[in-house]
Amino acid sequence: MLQTLPDLRGFARFLTRDPAAADDLVQDTIVRALASQEQFQQGTILKAWLFTIQRNAFYEQTRRRSREQEIMLDIEKDMQPSTAAPSLQNARDAVQDLGELLWKLPDLLREALILVGAQELSYEDAARVCDVPAGTMRARVSRARAQLAELATENTGPLETDTEKNST
């Protein structure tokens, strides 16, 4: 279980968008898992079981508090300007831009993309976490990727050529 803590925290950060709330969610997940460890079925994937517990705990908390909008407001505080090399700053900007685009996706699509892409779960395991068929998970990931590409195109606009830049 200890080996899954970084993955649990990463998924919790995407769910809560708040480091302190993510830590609380991970702690709640572990407590719930330990309390119901007899329900874990041997031969299944522990990581997927823990993600299921974490996801259910998250949605239970948001329903109970009725604060879903507040939880989903910010991805992170703006990064401080860096004095690092321009290429490192550009990489940071690209990651921040991607994070902002991810939060523009509908919740179900973002969740599918995070589970399959960032958390490296198989479609089948991610489908178990979300309690949907594997085909539904594949479709959600596909739609998420397509919408993410569309959002990226909208944010960057049409590409300028070097001659167009120099003529202005």
Results as ranks from 00 to 15, higher is better:
Asn90Asp: 04
Ala85Tyr: 05
Ala118Tyr: 11
Phe40Glu: 09
Gln61Ala: 11
Asp7Arg: 15
Leu46Asp: 00
Ala127Lys: 14
Ser142Gln: 06
Arg13Pro: 01
Asn166Gly: 00
Leu46Val: 10
Asp7Thr: 14
Ala35Lys: 05
Gln89Ile: 01
Trp103Gln: 13
Val95Pro: 07
Arg145Pro: 00
Ala118Trp: 13
Asn166Arg: 11
Ser142Phe: 01
Ala21Pro: 03
Asn56Asp: 15
Thr83Leu: 09
Tyr59His: 05
Ala118Val: 13
Leu34Lys: 02
Gly135Tyr: 01
Val26Tyr: 07
Pro19Gln: 04
Ala22Cys: 06
Arg63Gln: 14
Ala94Met: 07
Asp7His: 14
Val132Phe: 09
Val141Asp: 08
Phe51Val: 02
Asn155Pro: 00
Val132Glu: 05
Leu25Met: 03
Val95His: 10
Asp162Arg: 10
Ile71Ser: 08
Gln41Asn: 06
Thr161Arg: 03
Arg92Asn: 13
Ala22Asn: 03
Leu105Ile: 12
Phe58Gly: 06
Asp23Gly: 07
Gly43Asn: 08
Leu88Asp: 11
Phe14His: 15
Gln89Thr: 11
Thr168Gln: 12
Asp24His: 06
Gln80Ala: 15
Gln42Tyr: 02
Leu109Met: 12
Ala152Tyr: 01
Gln69Val: 15
Met1Gln: 08
Gly117Gln: 14
Ala118Gly: 13
Ala84Leu: 13
Leu73Asn: 12
Thr161Gly: 01
Gln119Gly: 05
Ala146Phe: 03
Pro6Phe: 12
Ala134Asn: 04
Ala149Tyr: 00
Thr163Trp: 00
Pro81Ile: 03
Leu88Ala: 14
Leu73Tyr: 02
Glu150Thr: 14
Ala35Gln: 05
Thr156Val: 09
Gln42Pro: 04
Leu108Ile: 08
Gly117Glu: 12
Phe40Gly: 10
Thr83Gly: 05
Gln39Asp: 06
Thr136Gln: 08
Glu154Gly: 01
Gly135Ala: 07
Val95Met: 09
Pro106Glu: 14
Ala134Tyr: 01
Asp162Ile: 12
Val95Cys: 10
Ile114Val: 15
Trp103Ala: 08
Thr83Val: 11
Ala94Gln: 15
Ser82Leu: 02
Thr161Pro: 00
Asp78Trp: 01
Asn56Arg: 09
Arg9Glu: 11
Lys77Gly: 06
Gln27Gly: 03
Leu34Gly: 00
Gln61Tyr: 05
Glu111Cys: 10
Leu108Gln: 14
Gln147Asn: 09
Asp125Val: 01
Ala12Gly: 05
Thr168Gly: 00
Pro86Cys: 09
Thr136Arg: 04
Asp28Tyr: 00
Val141Tyr: 06
Val132Ser: 07
Lys165Ile: 15
Leu109Gln: 14
Leu115Cys: 09
Leu15Gly: 10
Ala91Phe: 07
Thr29Val: 10
Arg138Ile: 15
Lys165Gly: 09
Gln27Pro: 11
Arg92Glu: 12
Glu154Lys: 05
Met137Leu: 02
Thr168Ile: 07
Leu101Pro: 07
Glu76Pro: 00
Arg17Met: 05
Gln41Ile: 11
Tyr123Val: 15
Gln42Trp: 01
Glu38Val: 00
Glu38Ile: 02
Arg63Phe: 13
